[in-house]
Design a protein around this nucleic acid. Structure first.
Lengths: 214, 214
DNA sequence: CAATGTATTGGCCGTTCGGCCAACATGCAA
DNA sequence: TTGCATGTTGGCCGAACGGCCAATACATTG
């Protein structure tokens, strides 16, 4: 390939790596496939990422940063705590689609085998939790929410959102719409909202691109 | 190795496969390592499981059956719905330890790549959900629980239990004891129990071997 | 005892992997 | 222009993989 700016080349490789990981998983992601997807020889990939683990870790880091940025952007675009909470609890929450959640599932599974991935995964999980805590506490300060344990409620929201995304992929005893209904009902009760407050007055998108995770 | 009953040999191989999958994950589990762990040559393993996928699928199936059997046994050993619910919501719920949950995490991640694993995973997820539904409905019939939507509440219990186990491995904004507190508090509220009804009157084990689910 | 079926062994093959490196191409500075 | 740093290529290596198979050991049946 023609010469390219190192930063661009690196970004292209990381993008290809993220896509490859989402499709094949960490363990089955080979440097040669990533190189081919990025339009690069495997030798050049080794020039940017000396060993395989550094490539995977960098791809994970890039994906994590992108995810949390998108979440923050989605939160920042709306100053109403109730709307922010909808953004979070909407299927599958801010940040991406089913492919994005597959990535997180892979990351969680792989984290056990890699201390580096575990560290990044943990940091992001905490960041996501604190994001929700922030929304709740702002809502409390504004008098919109009433909640005794914001940290616990935030954990519930995150946990149910994750479970929603997980069981959407695997399948469970509940339909996705029912899961979302439970998530909303429990969140409303935890925050002292009136039933149905989280359900949108008018549906904006019929089938919006979804996504999940932290 | 000395000659052995085919059923025993097969069981030994499957046990080794489950252990290997739990430690290394599906993708990194090699037939040669499983064979070595089972004290068998790789050629013999091929005699029992013609190809690699059939070995992984059989190991998953075996683990799934064992898991659901243990859960049913744990439920059956106690006829009091409240005690049964404790058994389910106890960290990490009935069925195994952290290693067992790692297995499920691997299975969920791998299910996307294998229709056979996805089918088994889905069946087991439904079975687990219905197990909890059964406990709740029995409790309602006995007048111990009061619940409008047993299916939804069961999903909440399963979802939060899964999230508990997941975030125990990954890390999150909450300590394990706090997560368990949330799980109990929400379950009590959903079932019309008095606060603290799920917390054991007297702690039986200080640090019991834990585990999780479905 | 002989014979047949099966458990079991160990070696082999083709493929693919991660990693390494000599060579070439290109841009930039002296 | 010359020279050096660096992007880029493609081939090579050893290791490990899944799969295959001829040979062997053993148990059961006739």
């Amino acid at each position: 390939m023609a010469r390219m700016q190192p930063a661009q080349r690196r970004a292209a490789i990381l993008e290809a790596a993220v896509a490859e990981i989402s499709e094949r998983g960490f363990a089955r992601t080979t440097s040669r496939h990533v190189a081919a997807r990025a339009g690069v020889t495997h030798g050049l990939l080794h020039h940017y990422f000396p060993d395989h683990d550094s490539l995977l870790a960098a791809a994970f880091e890039a994906m994590a940063l992108e995810e949390i940025d998108e979440a923050n952007a989605a939160i920042a675009s709306d100053r109403d705590p109730l709307a922010q909470l909808r953004e979070i609890t909407e299927p599958f929450g801010p940040g991406g689609g089913e492919a994005a959640y597959r990535f997180w599932l892979e990351a969680w599974a792989e984290a056990y085998h890699s201390p580096k991935l575990q560290e990044t995964s943990r940091r992001l999980s905490v960041a996501w939790h604190e994001l929700v805590v922030g929304v709740i506490e702002r809502g409390i300060a504004l008098g919109v929410f009433h909640c005794e344990h914001p940290h616990e409620t935030a954990w519930m929201v995150v946990a149910l959102s994750d479970a929603y995304a997980l069981q959407t992929q695997i399948g469970s005893g509940l339909a996705p719409s029912e899961m979302n209904h439970v998530l909303w009902r429990l969140t409303e009760r935890e925050l002292g909202l009136e039933p149905g407050a989280l359900a949108r007055p008018a549906a904006a998108e019929p089938t919006p691109p979804a996504h999940s995770g932290h």
